[in-house]
Amino acid sequence: MPELVLDKRRRRRPRPWRVLVAVLAVLAALGVLALVLPEPFGGRLSGATVAGSSMAPTYEDGDVVVVWRADDYRPGAVVAYAVPAGQVGAGGTVVHRVIDETAAGYRTQGDHNLRPDPWVAPDGEIRGRVVWSVPNGRVVLPRVAGASALVAVAALVVLVVRRVRRRHRAAPSLPTRPD
């Protein structure tokens, strides 16, 4: 009966510079993730959909805006904020321009509106300053996100299959010793 001989190759230890590069890459990825982490997960990034014509021509109905929570907002900044409790539309999100800062919060007004909003947005209700927008994003983004998700899943499947095939091909056959 032939005896199996297992291949006892010495495992090479990873080089110190490779370990350092890997650690730095993980730290950099975590840093970027912390910056772009969505608001529900404790980050500063959030989004809102513009509804109505109060911000025309800057933003139109259906535009999606990306907002970044900051420590302070200056007059002229476009912000998204929750309508204060007890007001018409309470809890809804408004995208308007800051026109003045008061002790109670920020006075805002839509670019297309003739008068300022009837309330002052307290600092704690402001979700952030608009940093980017997707015109007509309410219609475009669901289609793109669906296609992107499909492409990402397909790419993941292809990568896994290729890796499994590569491992299967590269698996060394066990040598046998004749008796």
Rank of each mutant, 00 (worst) to 15 (best):
Ala34Leu: 13
Val36Glu: 05
Asp179Phe: 13
Gly124His: 07
Leu45Lys: 10
Leu141Pro: 13
Leu156Pro: 00
Ile99Cys: 00
Pro178Lys: 06
Thr49Arg: 08
Ala149Leu: 14
Ala155Gln: 02
Val88Asp: 08
Arg69Phe: 08
Leu141Ser: 07
Val157Trp: 01
Val158Gly: 02
Leu4Met: 02
Lys8Phe: 13
Val66Ile: 15
Ala34Glu: 00
Arg163Leu: 15
Val88Ala: 13
Ala147Arg: 13
Arg11Glu: 02
Thr176Val: 12
Gly110Val: 05
Gly105Asn: 04
Ala152Ser: 12
Ala85Thr: 07
Leu6Ala: 07
Ala48Gln: 10
Asn113Cys: 01
Ala22Gly: 08
Val65Ala: 05
Val5Gln: 10
Ser148Asp: 08
Leu156Asp: 08
Arg44Thr: 13
Leu33Glu: 04
Thr176Asp: 03
Thr176Met: 08
Pro175Thr: 02
Leu33Ile: 08
Arg166Trp: 07
Val139Thr: 09
Val140Ile: 13
Arg127Met: 06
Leu174Phe: 07
Arg162Val: 12
Tyr81Thr: 14
Ser173Tyr: 06
Val64Gly: 02
Val21Pro: 00
Ala25Asn: 01
Val66Met: 07
Ala85Arg: 03
Arg143Ser: 11
Pro14Cys: 04
Asp61Ala: 09
Gly137Tyr: 14
Ser133Pro: 08
Ala155Cys: 14
Gly62Tyr: 15
Asp117Ile: 14
Ala85Val: 09
Ala90Ser: 12
Val160Pro: 00
Gly92Pro: 08
Ala56Tyr: 11
Pro57Met: 02
Ser53Gly: 14
Ala154Arg: 01
Ala104Leu: 14
Val130Phe: 04
Val94Ile: 15
Arg11Cys: 10
Ser133Gln: 09
Val26Cys: 01
Ala90Val: 07
Arg162Cys: 13
Leu24Trp: 11
Leu35Arg: 10
Leu35Asp: 12
Leu174Ala: 06
His168Ala: 10
Asp117Cys: 13
Gly76His: 01
Arg163Ile: 10
Leu45Gly: 10
Trp17Glu: 10
Gly31Asn: 03
Arg143Pro: 06
Arg115Lys: 12
Arg177Thr: 12
Val94Asn: 01
Val95Leu: 15
Gly43Phe: 11
Val23Trp: 07
Arg162Lys: 05
His168Lys: 01
Gly62Phe: 09
Leu156Cys: 15
Ser173Ile: 08
Arg74Leu: 09
Gly146Leu: 15
Arg97Asp: 07
His96Ile: 13
Val32Gln: 04
Val153Glu: 04
Pro135Trp: 08
Val151Trp: 13
Gly76Met: 00
Tyr59Gln: 09
Val161Ile: 01
Leu4Gly: 02
Ala29Leu: 08
Ala82Phe: 07
Asp100Phe: 04
Gly92Ile: 13
Thr108Ala: 07
Ile126Ala: 03
Val98His: 09
Ala145Phe: 10
Pro57Ala: 11
Pro178Met: 10
Gly137Asn: 03
Gly91Thr: 06
Arg129Asp: 03
Val134Pro: 09
Ala152Glu: 04
Val26Asp: 00
Ala25Thr: 09
Gly89His: 00
Arg69Cys: 05
Val131Gly: 00
Arg165Asn: 00
Val139Glu: 14
Val131Glu: 07
Asp7Pro: 12
Pro40Gln: 02
Val160Gly: 01
Ala80Cys: 02
Gly110Trp: 01
Trp68Thr: 07
Pro84Arg: 11
Val79Tyr: 02
Glu39Asp: 07
Leu37Ser: 05
Pro40Ala: 06
Val26Thr: 04
Val153Lys: 15
Ala25Leu: 15
Val131Leu: 09
